[in-house]
């Protein structure tokens, strides 16, 4: 299952101590409110809204992202909002480990469990909950307040249950996520090569 290596421009990405790779071209508002679990890749033109949060001052986690996650190009992560007891506010969003979010996808979910792969061009509605080990196909629209059970494949507009995943999917998804991180490496420029030789 060897796939080709994805090279990126070293000057474009920031690499943190915990192994997060964050594109400089992404828009991350209020990074104090965002927690990254480590070894997460945030690709270019990604928008993460950490400023939309519950009323009140001080430090709060608005968006929590686990380890080995991938936020694809042009994807938008923004917390969901609702009126509760007459007060309007945004609510925190939790994304667990090994979650892949495809290109141009808009996510406004409340919680995404471990080992979830979301395809390209999807729209995940407000306060939807995606449980562990799921696959959302490309071009899917998940309506607001949907709960997607474990081991299911969803697709279509509006999103419907299509099939079940085998129990081995945990291992496959984990491998996939780790392999993607390993494949995503900086392009070594020729001058560097010469000096290293």
């Amino acid at each position: 299952m060897e796939e080709e290596i994805i090279y990126y421009d070293k000057s474009e990405y920031i690499e943190t101590d915990s192994g997060n790779k964050i594109s400089r071209k992404s828009v991350i508002s209020v990074p104090q409110n965002i927690v990254l679990g480590g070894k997460t890749i945030i690709q270019q033109n990604c928008i993460i809204r950490g400023d939309l949060r519950r009323k009140g001052s001080g430090y709060a986690v608005v968006i929590g992202i686990g380890k080995y996650c991938l936020l694809g190009e042009d994807s938008i992560i923004r917390p969901p909002y609702k009126i509760y007891k007459g007060v309007f506010s945004y609510y925190p969003m939790k994304i667990s480990d090994y979650v892949h979010i495809g290109q141009r996808t808009i996510v406004e979910a409340a919680r995404i469990g471990q080992y979830v792969i979301i395809g390209n061009d999807c729209v995940i509605g407000r306060f939807s909950v995606i449980k562990e080990y799921c696959r959302i196909l490309d071009n899917t629209v998940i309506p607001p307040n949907t709960v997607i059970p474990s081991f299911s494949v969803y697709g279509g507009n509006p999103g419907r249950f299509i099939s079940e995943l085998p129990e081995s999917s945990q291992i496959i998804f984990e491998q996939k996520a780790k392999q993607y991180y390993d494949r995503f490496i900086a392009k070594i420029e020729e001058d560097d090569k010469k000096t290293s030789n």
Binding site: V30, D51, R53, K55, Y81, I83, F88, S89
Partner: peptide
């Protein structure tokens, strides 16, 4: 309408704080 109004007032208050 009422949701939209509350949304507006929230954004007017909080958007300038961080952006």
């Amino acid at each position: 309408q009422s949701l939209h109004l509350r949304h507006l007032t929230y954004l007017h208050e909080y958007l300038p704080k961080h952006n």
